[in-house]
Design a protein around this nucleic acid. Structure first.
Length: 283
DNA sequence: CCCTATGTTCCCAA
DNA sequence: CTTGGGAACATAGG
């Protein structure tokens, strides 16, 4: 009964809020922002109840008298660890987002999952319903894949790319190659490294991979420091905008002058994704 | 009607 | 087996 009532409320609110709803799309800095904020605000909190509002999410139950013990991130995966040893794995995909609210009877638009803590409620909302959220006994999906903040090794990348004919930008987006880079930051990283996104991955030199590895660390770290990029309205755990949209060098700036060489920036398409770059100084 | 969207997975062909 | 290309997922906005 309880869950059925919540579903009605969530549906009504979703319809009422359609005109103001914006879409967040998280990459590594956005997910890391959520991880840090969750770690600061919900570790030690007891889980009173959970509720599901989306048939695409397989419902699960968790034991009584458990609390949140840790919050981890692997690439774009977020892992909420429970004192029972169980883990809730979340991938926000295109439009998923999390909100931590004071106790309330009002649900945010497109609520798909709610976790009721002692004095707060954690919502997972998702307009396009691509996000995944599941309970698992142990999560290690991307634990062994290089992390651009910790161990993006240029020599390993050079070797791994040696047989790949696709554009280097597409390889940077492969989560099994390096975990966490998405479309915006791939454009920014290749601009900072002065590598043309259309270059075949196997054609890059070791020196170029060193530049990409360094740019990945610098740009993604700066993205985390800025609490993410709010272009189409990414919001953090408390509904607040990030700041990295104010630091973008090329993304969304086609026809503007390159900040490095003043040539006109171009927009093109690689693997179906919008790609922004400087045709003059990205070699 | 067309196109676009910070992501991933699946199917199919080479 | 790997690699790469495209559609699919579902929904909104321009």
């Amino acid at each position: 009964m309880l869950f059925a009532n919540y579903l009605v409320v969530a549906t009504i609110l979703a319809k009422a809020s359609l005109t103001t709803y914006k879409v967040p799309m998280p990459e590594l800095p956005e997910v890391e922002t959520l991880r840090k904020q969750l770690a600061q605000n919900v570790i030690g909190e007891a889980v009173q109840d959970i509720a599901f509002f989306d048939e695409r999410i397989k419902p699960f139950v968790i034991s009584k008298d458990i609390a949140i013990s840790a919050v981890e991130r692997f690439g774009k995966y977020l892992v909420i660890c429970l004192t029972s040893g169980e883990q809730i794995v979340i991938h926000l995909r295109m439009t998923g987002h999390l909100l931590l609210c004071e106790p309330t009877t009002e649900f945010p638009p497109y609520t798909r999952f709610a976790m009721f803590l002692t004095n707060k409620t954690l919502f997972c909302c998702d307009l396009r319903r691509f996000a995944i959220l599941e309970l698992t006994a142990f999560f290690s999906k991307t634990a062994l894949i290089p992390n651009p903040l910790e161990n993006f090794d240029a020599k390993a990348a050079l070797a791994a790319a040696s047989s790949r004919l696709l554009p280097v930008k597409q390889l940077l987006l492969e989560q099994g190659f390096i975990a966490g880079i998405g479309n915006i930051y791939a454009c920014e990283i290749l601009f900072a490294a002065q590598v043309n996104p259309f270059r075949k991955a196997c054609s890059l030199t070791g020196r170029e991979w060193q530049r990409i590895a360094r740019a990945s660390l610098e740009i993604l770290s700066a993205g985390v420091e800025s609490r993410g990029t709010s272009i189409s309205d990414w919001r953090d755990l408390f509904g607040k905008k990030g700041e990295y949209q104010n630091h973008l060098a090329v993304y969304g700036r086609q026809q503007e002058p390159c900040p490095r060489c003043s040539a006109i920036l171009e927009r093109s398409k690689i693997g179906g994704r919008g790609t922004f770059f400087c045709p003059h100084c990205q070699k």
